[in-house]
Structure formats: C-alpha cells, structure tokens
C-alpha cells in the first residue's frame, strides 16, 4: 500500500515539476518566472521527502533544509532586484 502511494505521489509531483518548468520557460512576465522557480524548489523538497521515505534514509532532510533556505533567499533576492534594481544597497 505504501509503495503504491509513493509511486503515485512520485508521478503527481513529477508532473507538478513539469508544469512549473513550462511556466518557467513560457511565463509572460518576470514575476511569473520567479514564482515558477519558487514552486520548483518547494516541489524539489517534496520529491526529496518522498525519496527519503522510499529509500528509508533520513539523510535527505539535510538536503531539503538547505534547498528550503537557499530557495527562499533566492526568491527574496530576485524580488528585491525587480523592486529596487539592486539587491544589496
């Protein structure tokens, strides 16, 4: 049961990643692309969690935590660049 659920979840999250990539490539405006990147890192955390449960390895959390930190900093830096034209004033 758990293996079936994890397989289905892998499929769904992979489709979500594909849709984010589509919005990242097509996005009519720059904030759309930043939003797609933001969603991509959240989806990457979801994929890492699923992989951790599937392989029974708790080491993936450190990677997920790093991705969460760096993704947030990246989003804030890109938004700041759009808002102010500069990141660190």
């Amino acid at each position: 049961m758990l293996d079936f659920a994890i397989t289905v979840a892998f499929g769904l999250v992979t489709m979500a990643v594909g849709m984010c990539c589509w919005r990242l490539l097509r996005g009519p405006s720059t904030p759309d692309r930043i939003l797609a990147l933001d969603t991509l890192y959240v989806n990457a955390i979801a994929l890492l969690m699923l992989l951790g449960i599937h392989l029974g390895n708790a080491l993936f959390f450190e990677a997920a935590l790093l991705i969460a930190l760096m993704g947030f900093i990246g989003t804030v830096a890109l938004c700041k660049y759009l808002l102010r034209g500069d990141i660190i004033e």
Binding site: L12, V13, M15, A16, V17, M19, C20, W22, R23, L35, A36, T39, V42, N43, A46
Partner: peptide, 9 residues
C-alpha cells in the same frame, strides 16, 4: 502539490 502547480499553469 499537483493542484498548486496546475493553478500555476
């Protein structure tokens, strides 16, 4: 997660 990305698309 899927629905959120579907909304984005």
């Amino acid at each position: 997660t899927f629905i959120g990305s579907l909304g984005l698309l």
